[in-house]
Every structure is written in C-alpha cells, then in structure tokens.
Design a protein around this nucleic acid. Structure first.
Length: 289
DNA sequence: CTTGGGTCCTGTGCGC
DNA sequence: TGCGCACAGGACCCAA
C-alpha cells in the first residue's frame, strides 16, 4: 500500500500513542518476513522505551532507550493496527478500543505499558523489520544510498536536476528509484508527471531546468496533498477494519485508464503503458513526449 | 556505471 | 459458480 504519504501519515498517527512508552511485551508469530526477523528480537525490545519515531523514505525508524533503532518497512501489503483501552479517549475514530481477535498475517504484536497494542500485518511479507545499534544507522545498507527527501525544504528544481543529470532512462522509473529520490513510488511518480505535464517516457537527464522546476514542485505538491488527505482521513474517516495508515485518495491518473483528463479544456483520455514492469498512467495530450 | 527483467509472497478481481 | 491467470502501492539482485 504505502508510499511516502501513507508512511508519514502512519508515523503521525502512531506517535501520540507510543512515543515515550515502554514496550512490555512482544509476540512474534513467525520467524521471518522478507528476511529473518532480528535475532532475539522480542528480548531486545521488551523493556525498552520508544523515545521517538522518525521516517526516512518509506522506512519508519524507532529510537529505543536500549540504544538500538528499530527499522520497519511495510513493503507492498504491510499494515499497522493500533488497539487498546487507552484509545477510548481518543478524538480519533479509526482505532479499535478493544484488542481484536488475531487476524491471519498478524506477524508481530507489541504491547506498550499504557495498554496500547501495535499489530503488524503483512500478507505478502515484502515488509522488513531490522534492529541495530544507533551508531550503525549511518551506513545501514538500506539507508546509506537513499536519495534526498522530496519534502525537505532544500529539495527544489536544481536539486532534482542534479539527481537526474546524465540519466538516459525514462523519467518515470527513474523517479521511483529510491537512490535518486527517496519515497516516490508508482502512484505518485505518475501523478507528479501528470501535474508537471511531462511524458513518462522522456529521458530523465533530458529535462530542461524549467521542467525540473515544474516537476520538483509537482512532486512536493502531490505528496503534500496526499498527506493532507491522510491527515483528514485519520481524523474523520472511520474505516471498517480500524486499520491505520490507509486513506482514500482520488488519483488524477493512477488506475484511471480511459478516464477523461482533468486538466481544464484538455479533451485527452488517460492512457496506460508498462515501464520496467510497472504500470504508468498519463494523458497523451497534455504530457508531450 | 546503467538498465531491464526476474524474484520474493498472498490476495483479489476479471474473463471464460 | 468455479477456475486460472494477470496483476497489485516495494525493492533487491543479477546479467548484459
């Protein structure tokens, strides 16, 4: 499910309930996700206090009082569920107040001292959990080679141009390369190119400074719009299953093949192509090759 | 070095 | 209604 806005929405949703809380119990229902779970994971987590919850790209990073950092990635199908009596007073509707019965693919369950329970569910198991000492974060193989954060204040047209320089491949898959730019996935790559009016098959390194300026702005705008939708869904949208971190968002091109282009006065029809094995959506009329 | 393709895994939705 | 297949929001690994 998750791209950067979903992960950030999840981080913001979890933070008030687990930050500063001590982990009092950890239940592991299988030894691995995509990779084996960290050695002695339950013992290493139990008794530690979760000091802060950060995000880098699509990774959540939890700083623990034990001096270790827990890294969590949701993969394609990962979800996090919060439950517990402590949430009864919450102004938020989309939490369980009682612990629900265990579901299929509930792989990791963590209980905090305030009674809040965090459940990680991931059918496809492309998710990842790692645990390492804080000093090992810089240089962690999953984090060391990530590109810049698109929501960081210093990310702008020239910064994007520098990342795309010399890249001969089509811009859409290049945008999805986490080493080029962190956190932009298949949905928002298409959405951003549409907003910027740039064809997904354009050579990444061939974009003009002006186009890079437009594209950088479009990436930031679409991510922020999704974040805003996530934030409001968190407050207002009650999900049937209580799952946190997902929200309905109206995409302008993603999964909209055949729909009318939403740009004013454009009579185009959204098209779908496959690039590097992933679906890309665009308007052939206003995104010129 | 880049780039494209295969791979991990389960669930869902579509066409027949 | 059942069955088989294509495809799904990520990201690594490897061959060319």
């Amino acid at each position: 499910m998750p791209e950067l806005p979903e992960v950030e929405t999840l981080r913001r949703g979890l933070m008030p309930w687990i930050e500063g809380q001590k982990i009092v119990g950890v239940q592991l229902n299988r030894p691995d996700l995509r990779e084996p779970l960290p050695a002695r994971m339950a013992a290493r987590l139990t008794g530690a206090r979760l000091l802060a919850l950060r995000r880098r790209a699509k990774y959540l990073l939890a700083d623990l009082s034990s001096g270790e950092v827990m890294l969590l990635h949701l993969g394609m199908s990962g979800r996090v569920l919060l439950s517990g009596q402590a949430l009864s007073a919450a102004p938020l509707a989309n939490y369980y107040h009682e612990h629900p019965a265990a579901q299929k693919h509930d792989h990791v369950v963590m209980d905090f001292e305030n009674g809040v329970r965090l459940t990680f569910n991931d059918p496809r198991r492309f998710g990842l959990i790692d645990l390492f000492s804080a000093g090992a974060e810089v240089g962690h193989p999953r984090l060391a080679h990530l590109g810049p954060e698109p929501l960081a204040p210093e990310f702008d047209g020239p910064a994007l141009a520098a990342r795309l320089k010399g890249k001969k491949g089509p811009v859409k898959p290049v945008l999805m390369d986490a080493g080029v730019l962190a956190g932009v996935g298949n949905i928002y790559a298409s959405e951003a190119l549409f907003r910027a009016g740039i064809h997904p098959e354009r050579a990444a390194g061939g974009l003009s400074a002006r186009e890079c300026q437009r594209l950088a702005g479009a990436i930031r705008d679409v991510l922020e719009a999704a974040l805003e939708a996530g934030g409001s869904s968190l407050r207002d949208f009650q999900q049937a299953d209580g799952a946190l971190g997902l929200f309905q968002h109206r995409f302008q091109v993603y999964d909209q093949e055949g729909a009318a282009c939403q740009k004013p006065r454009c009579k185009g029809q959204i098209a779908k192509i496959v690039q590097s094995g992933r679906a890309s959506y665009f308007c052939p009329k206003c995104q010129v090759a």
